[in-house]
Simulated assay, not measured.
Amino acid sequence: MFGNADPSITMIDNSYIQLLITKGILYTFVLLAVYSLIIGSVKKISFHTAAVIFAFFLLGITEATLQHFELILPMLLAISMDRRLEMQNSQKEGSNVS
């Protein structure tokens, strides 16, 4: 439940399985919940942002990348650009109503 620190079984190419074995169910659940909250914070996701997010999670199946937080940066940048566009659009709509 809390992971296994034995380094002899930590070399697995699938990030999801590696997280479950080495970090445990709680860490994996919390990490995926944080990813879900970050992605869910955007009301409308552009095609490019969806492609970046899909590529990140697809790469997690073939490589051990999910716990590398430096690889989250492109996903966070794309999401922040979408949120900025949402805010600009809502401000334009608010000024058009007045």
Rank of each mutant, 00 (worst) to 15 (best):
15 S>T: 04
76 L>A: 13
42 V>H: 02
87 M>V: 12
73 L>I: 15
26 L>Y: 11
82 D>W: 05
68 H>T: 09
60 G>L: 01
46 S>V: 03
63 E>L: 11
68 H>W: 02
55 A>V: 02
94 G>R: 10
29 F>L: 12
45 I>W: 06
84 R>I: 05
34 V>E: 10
75 M>N: 03
57 F>N: 10
54 F>S: 12
57 F>D: 10
29 F>T: 14
55 A>I: 00
30 V>F: 04
90 S>M: 13
27 Y>Q: 10
54 F>A: 13
36 S>A: 14
29 F>C: 02
52 V>P: 01
60 G>P: 04
87 M>D: 11
12 I>N: 12
35 Y>N: 03
53 I>P: 01
65 T>G: 01
82 D>K: 06
40 G>K: 14
42 V>T: 15
24 G>F: 03
9 I>P: 00
76 L>K: 10
2 F>E: 12
60 G>S: 06
36 S>I: 00
97 V>R: 12
54 F>I: 06
36 S>Q: 12
6 D>Q: 06
74 P>E: 11
57 F>Y: 14
46 S>H: 02
41 S>E: 06
41 S>K: 05
70 E>V: 07
72 I>F: 13
59 L>D: 06
27 Y>R: 08
83 R>N: 09
8 S>Y: 08
98 S>A: 05
18 Q>G: 05
40 G>R: 13
54 F>M: 06
26 L>E: 13
91 Q>H: 08
66 L>I: 15
5 A>M: 06
15 S>F: 03
92 K>G: 02
82 D>M: 05
96 N>Q: 12
90 S>W: 05
44 K>T: 15
45 I>Q: 11
42 V>L: 04
65 T>E: 06
53 I>M: 06
58 L>W: 07
6 D>I: 08
36 S>C: 07
50 A>V: 00
12 I>P: 03
24 G>L: 05
26 L>D: 14
